[in-house]
Design a protein around this nucleic acid. Structure first.
Length: 575
DNA sequence: GCCGTTTTCGGCCCGACTGTTTTCAGTCG
């Protein structure tokens, strides 16, 4: 059993505890334990064998015994008996905005509601308002929430790139009013999570009423959900929620940290503040012992320093070990976009790209790169005008000419994105050996059984000419899950064969994702960030790949294309 | 359920907003 699978079961247990009206701190204990398991670098099965489970933070005698039971028997008896008390449909009832564990439990106890459909029917028949503490407003909120849950437009999380665009528009609009002193993106978008559920914006102002009224009047909002003195929530016509927080200018740094989160990270910070006899909230530090000795940080760095931590980058604020690393002075020196020296996966007009190689080279040079690799598709991918051997030869000649006479200020490597077919690569070794860079990837047979896909990928990784495995899981955000692969095994093979794993920076892909990348890096795999550009503007998608790498704690020396051309060539020839 | 240079018992992060109340419970982030 994998760590994340065990963690998932503990999370389910926590939900069950919530739904049965147990002590909320008990559920929190299980969530905390699950979180610790997820970020563990060693297998839980191994720790269990060694009887060392209780060494994990948040795992005591009960949970360690239950994990042992789970590993031995495949289930936890206490959890199974809870499941008998709680129909599985109650979990979906919990997803309705305005319905938490207490109300879900109440609806189940009093009305026998165990599904979304039953909840909707009860609300329509005005049954809910008969219950204690529930009125017509709550009923309406629940009906609206169910409508939103089942509306396809609202059912998907917003991809990072799209969220950036919407946020930029809202921020430039907010800046039109002079009462706005400062605006910033907060929440998961600032932490650069691959998809965001809603947009969090923070404004510094002396006049929150005016800013609030201005904000509420934005035409793109289809409904104002809440409108308080400091917080406004609205539905955006793009199918997501926007939360605006307003604070006084001198509260801005503390508020920025607070609303950036994550929630779990904030809890850790507040615990540290509390140990120093301070309460930390969105307004600053309040001294719990001495009135008037409050502290308003003037920057996020000052806020961290006050609780004896160095500045922690937003991408790391997930309570995935960053607090401990900060305390030990072992935070990573995260990669930035300016560390990127080149892009090793770009398509030209020779296959399904729109730009010529020369146009690409000039655009890449303008972005400060010192090299690029043109990796057009191979022959079998006819839908993408895949290159035959003859056309590949002609393309190589063009690249050679450009390098020789082009005056481009950038070096063009001649590459190929070779398709991984069912039992071979799309070009023979002799052809691959001639390429400067070989990127291998799967474009067919997504639904094959795991063994089949895995043997194809293994074939590619074991081929000595293959330098990079591109978009390793094949997932498309919000559209297609990845292939059924064993990522642990792929990472092991990549390390063994010294093949680089790609973070494909295309906003639809972001493949590998942050968690997988972190695993790969921890186990010593080489990682490369590529744009997979098909037109010139796509080169700018590199930053989304860099975001993934930053969330994976990547430092420049771990990323292949942070090397200069000589370093890259040394790596390519050393393998 | 977990945990301990204030603690082996009694805490466990903190506040905004709404609705159903008549001082607070529930939800959310």
């Amino acid at each position: 059993m994998k760590n994340y699978e065990i963690a998932w079961i503990l999370l389910e247990y926590a939900d069950l505890l919530d739904l049965t009206g147990e002590n909320p701190f008990k559920a929190r204990a299980y969530r905390r334990a699950a979180r610790q398991l997820e970020q563990l670098s060693q297998p839980v099965t191994e720790l269990n064998r060694q009887g060392r489970l209780t060494e994990i933070n948040g795992v005591g005698s009960t949970i360690s015994n239950q994990i042992a039971e789970l590993l031995a028997t495949g289930s936890i008896a206490a959890m199974e008996s809870l499941k008998k008390q709680v129909p599985s449909g109650l979990f979906t009832v919990l997803t309705v905005p305005g319905v938490g564990p207490i109300r879900a439990h109440l609806f189940y106890q009093e009305l026998g509601i165990t599904s979304l459909a039953e909840l909707e029917e009860a609300a329509r028949k005005r049954q809910l308002r008969k219950l204690k503490g529930i009125g017509n407003k709550v009923e309406a909120t629940i009906l609206d929430g169910i409508r939103r849950l089942t509306d396809p437009q609202f059912s998907q999380r917003l991809p990072l790139a799209l969220a950036d665009e919407y946020a930029d528009l809202l921020i430039s609009r907010l800046n039109l009013t002079p009462e706005v002193v400062e605006v910033a993106v907060a929440g998961s978008l600032r932490r650069r999570v691959e998809t965001v559920g809603d947009l969090d914006l923070l404004v510094a102002t002396q006049a929150p009423e005016d800013v609030g009224a201005f904000f509420r009047s934005f035409p793109e909002f289809t409904k104002i959900l809440t409108a308080g003195l400091t917080k406004i929530s609205a539905y955006h016509r793009g199918g997501f929620q926007v939360d605006l927080q307003m604070v006084l200018p001198n509260q801005f740094p503390a508020a920025l940290a607070h609303f950036t989160g994550s929630k779990e990270h904030n809890i850790r910070l507040r615990q540290l503040a509390k140990a120093k006899n301070y309460r930390l909230n969105e307004y600053g530090f309040q001294n719990l012992k001495a009135e008037g000795s409050d502290f308003l940080p003037t920057s996020e760095a000052e806020l961290f320093n006050f609780i004896e931590l160095p500045f922690i980058e937003p991408e790391l604020r997930e309570d995935r070990g960053e607090i401990e690393a900060a305390q030990a002075g072992e935070l990573p020196q995260l990669i930035t976009v300016t560390d990127i020296q080149g892009d090793l996966h770009i398509h030209s007009r020779w296959s399904d790209g729109l730009a010529t190689i020369e146009e690409i080279a000039r655009a890449a040079a303008a972005r400060g790169y010192s090299y690029i690799a043109i990796c057009d598709h191979s022959q079998s991918l006819s839908i993408a005008k895949g290159l035959t051997f003859q056309r590949l030869q002609a393309q190589r000649q063009e690249i050679a000419n450009l390098n020789q006479h082009g005056d481009l200020g950038i070096f063009i490597l001649s590459g190929i994105e070779v398709d991984i077919l069912n039992d071979q690569l799309d070009f023979p070794d002799a052809v691959l050996a001639e390429a400067d860079v070989v990127v291998a990837s799967i474009h067919s047979g997504f639904k094959q059984p795991p063994e089949t896909i895995m043997s194809r990928i293994e074939l590619a990784l074991r081929n000595p000419h293959v330098d990079i495995l591109a978009h390793p899981t094949g997932r498309l955000l919000g559209r297609r899950a990845g292939y059924a692969i064993d990522l642990d095994r792929i990472i092991d093979l990549a390390v063994e064969t010294q093949t680089a794993l790609e973070i494909n920076a295309f906003p639809d892909r972001l493949d590998l994702d942050d968690r997988s990348t972190r695993q790969a890096l921890e186990r010593g795999a080489m990682v490369v960030i590529n744009s997979d550009s098909h037109r010139l503007e796509h080169l700018d998608n590199m930053r989304y790949g860099v975001s993934v790498a930053r969330r994976a704690w990547a430092e420049p020396h771990q990323i292949l294309n942070c090397r200069n051309l000589q370093g890259l060539r040394e790596w390519l020839t050393s393998r």
